[in-house]
């Protein structure tokens, strides 16, 4: 009885992540003053939304056996370009959002084309893209911070329709779409197949190249959305604003039980993974340690969680 429960949990690593989040929230809620208040939990969810959205694209890429190391740079690009691309005479601000997302998607398409048609390994293609963007951005935007006046973006970062922050609602929508795409569409099935065995997929007549272009464009698009949301919450965009989200997105994916080797995983694990990451970072901040200790605790925490949940099956 007991054993079968353990076996079942082990078969779905993401359940473990969910349980862990619940446990941390309950324990911290009872021991730390103010942790369990609705305002604080809502704040944690809002922070998780940014990681969750960028990690949605990362989840898809990782499941297909790749990795996207350019998401941090794409977020920065979106956050800095949006104010520049928003025409002042547009009262809705949607034009600027559209243009920014088009650019983010375009960057993703370039990543995918490089990986698919030039056969550059994704880790190099996206790393080189990140380096490239980092330089280009400072040349274009001059390296100073820009403030946002786009009404739609400000609304996204501060409004609370139905009592929930708009960012969290956006995250719920993205989650639903990602889960649907991954588990209920041919596209999702193709990603799993490519991740499990790219050669077999190709030989089975699957258009692997086209799928990976679509895949990386989705990742670029979602990183763009996350960048815009981050800009809305921050009100300011600056070089390096997206940098921390690269590692967080990968950590959230892996904590959620998705195999970094591809072929196996679900976005249902990345969601609690992102919340777990934000919660533990918040707890570490509460401890009031020096930046050095904070970094050590963050790294050890990820490593410890990995030892518990992220172990690759023996082959």
């Amino acid at each position: 009885m007991n054993r079968s429960l353990v076996t079942r949990v082990a078969a779905h690593p993401w359940v473990l992540t969910l349980v862990l989040v619940a446990l941390v929230w309950i324990v911290a809620g009872f021991t730390l003053r103010g942790f369990g208040s609705w305002g604080h939990l809502r704040y944690l969810l809002e922070l998780s939304a940014v990681i969750g959205i960028v990690a949605a694209g990362q989840t898809l890429v990782v499941i297909a056996g790749g990795i996207d190391l350019s998401v941090g740079a794409v977020m920065t690009v979106s956050a800095i370009l949006l104010p520049l691309l928003s025409p002042a005479d547009d009262p809705t601000g949607l034009a600027g959002i559209g243009a920014t997302l088009a650019i983010a998607t375009g960057i993703g398409i370039l990543n995918g084309a490089g990986a698919a048609y030039l056969r550059v390994p994704p880790i190099i293609m996206t790393l080189a893209m990140a380096t490239f963007l980092q330089g280009l951005l400072i040349i274009v935007a001059g390296g100073s911070a820009v403030s946002v006046s786009n009404p739609a973006v400000i609304w996204l970062g501060s409004a609370r329709p139905l009592g929930l922050p708009a960012g969290v609602i956006l995250w719920i929508l993205v989650s639903a779409a990602t889960l649907y795409a991954l588990h209920r569409t041919p596209f999702g099935a193709r990603l799993m197949a490519i991740g499990a065995n790219p050669i077999a997929s190709r030989l089975s007549g699957l258009a692997v190249d086209r799928a990976s272009v679509r895949l990386y464009s989705a990742s670029g698009f979602l990183a763009g959305v996350a960048g815009i949301l981050l800009l809305g919450m921050n009100r300011q965009g600056y070089a390096g604003i997206g940098d921390p989200y690269l590692l967080s997105s990968i950590a959230a994916v892996v904590l959620g039980g998705t195999s970094i080797l591809g072929g196996r995983g679900t976005y249902a694990g990345t969601v609690p993974g992102a919340i777990l990451l934000v919660t533990s970072t918040a707890l570490i901040t509460v401890v009031n340690a020096s930046p050095g200790w904070r970094s050590i605790m963050f790294g050890s925490l990820i490593l410890a969680l990995l030892l518990v949940s992220g172990r690759e099956a023996r082959r």
Binding site: L247, S295, G299, G310, R311, E312
Partner: peptide
Amino acid sequence: FRLPAIIVTLAGSFIVGG
């Protein structure tokens, strides 16, 4: 522990940097 090197060293980069 059969963990992927990329993730172990990614987490390790935080520890070492700290």
